[in-house]
Write a protein that binds this DNA or RNA. Structure first.
Lengths: 225, 225
DNA sequence: CTCGGCCGTGGAGATTTCGTAAAGAACGGC
DNA sequence: GCCGTTCTTTACGAAATCTCCACGGCCGAG
């Protein structure tokens, strides 16, 4: 699962979106495009990109607001795009939690350089490789294996496992898991959570019927230490 | 990973209490209301809020005294509310251990800003692991164990144990236990409380017939220190 | 001594919640 | 435009949990 890093891009002009996509692909990243603020927030929650590039001028909710709402639950690096003359909005975006800004028009090298700068700066705290009952989880590399055999997880399954492993031993409520994996707007949908837990178990639990992920009925789940 | 932080609010005017509640809810906090100093001290003990907002002018014991009594056992951040002209009381409250004060009338943003400032300053008191007569209770992880053996509790049993442990040594009435575990609408059903206390005892008390949870007949229960 | 109140205990029934499978929908790749 | 992967939704049997009830013991009042 060591794929290209995902970068959310958000602009209402399809032309710019396409340009950004090409720039990023050439630099080795995969773009997640969004044409509106709402769409950007949705995709940020669902795809969990490693960074976001957001235009300040958007049709529905502006870039400052998108930044603010992202910061409510995510630490991901954010670059805002501003046109000349949007000085004030730029300042507000930085205050709302943006990490950097780029003034349009910009050259591809400049954008890529700034993106890589903030990705480097992002703590990316050295996350250790965790071993739980024969299961190896490498949070930095996003890989999971048992007995040397790599196990393929879908993006959602991996995000779920990551939250559980980072808090191993601790009981996590349905609400917390839903918020951490699907984003803050999604804290009710327990059936979906149940399904993904079931799929995850089928893939990662040892053969002997032992449970690695334990259920606390009516409350949530936890992973054994 | 953070559920809504609890904030104790204490004022004798229901109107202000309601206003505070709305302000806090909009800012993402859950309010624990109290209309008197005594009630504030009770609820602070039982609910373990992360911060407190206390009016200086109260019907029974004044805000300064409430601050002092809270500080006897808790480090929680405290903001006092003072009317203009209560300069002297304000100073005494700060001396008694309050962290900040806000003069009425105040704007919601100001209050929220000060609250978040002191919450940042006092980063989340990690709830300690409590050990009682060989029983380990980890309130943060929601786990209970004895002799290294993990003990499985149902959600209700754990909520009950949590209230007892947070108030260890203190007598808790049936009414208080029912309110804290089952909610404010459920303060009559002592038979159910008895059943759950019995189930809890069976699971957590040591083998030698020693009682960890003590009964005060006609009044309530307490857990031994 | 008897009675009434309160408590501890065990168990039965009902309700809620869970696990799993399978079908339908969204998305991207080719 | 078709296909494979992934995610969501739905349905149903199984399991866990909660509530309620009945019985017996203890203790103090009368």
């Amino acid at each position: 699962m060591s794929e290209a890093a995902l970068v959310l891009i958000c602009d209402d002009e399809p032309q710019i979106l396409r340009a950004l996509r090409v720039i990023l692909r050439d630099a080795g990243y995969e773009a997640v495009p969004a044409q509106s603020g709402e769409e950007a927030l949705d995709k940020a929650a669902v795809r969990a990109p490693q960074a976001a590039i957001i235009d300040l001028m958007l049709p529905d909710i502006d870039g400052v607001e998108v930044t603010r709402r992202l910061r409510e639950w995510s630490e991901m690096p954010i670059i805002v795009l501003s046109a000349v003359g949007e000085e004030e909005a730029k300042v507000r975006a930085l205050a709302a939690g943006a990490d950097d800004y780029v003034v349009k028009p910009f050259g591809p090298p400049e954008l890529v350089a700034r993106l890589e700068a903030i990705l480097r700066r992002a703590p990316r705290d050295a996350e250790p490789i965790v071993e739980l009952d024969g299961l190896r989880v490498d949070l930095a590399a996003s890989t999971v294996s048992r007995d040397g055999e790599e196990i393929h997880l879908t993006p959602t399954e991996f995000r779920l496992l990551r939250v559980l492993v980072r808090n191993r031993g601790r009981l996590l409520t349905h609400r917390i898991l839903l918020r951490e994996v699907w984003g803050p707007a999604w804290t009710e949908d327990t059936p979906t959570l149940r399904t993904h837990i079931a799929n995850l178990r089928r893939k990662i639990e040892p053969a002997g019927g032992r449970r690695l992920i334990r259920t606390d009925p009516g409350v949530g789940y936890r992973i054994s230490v």
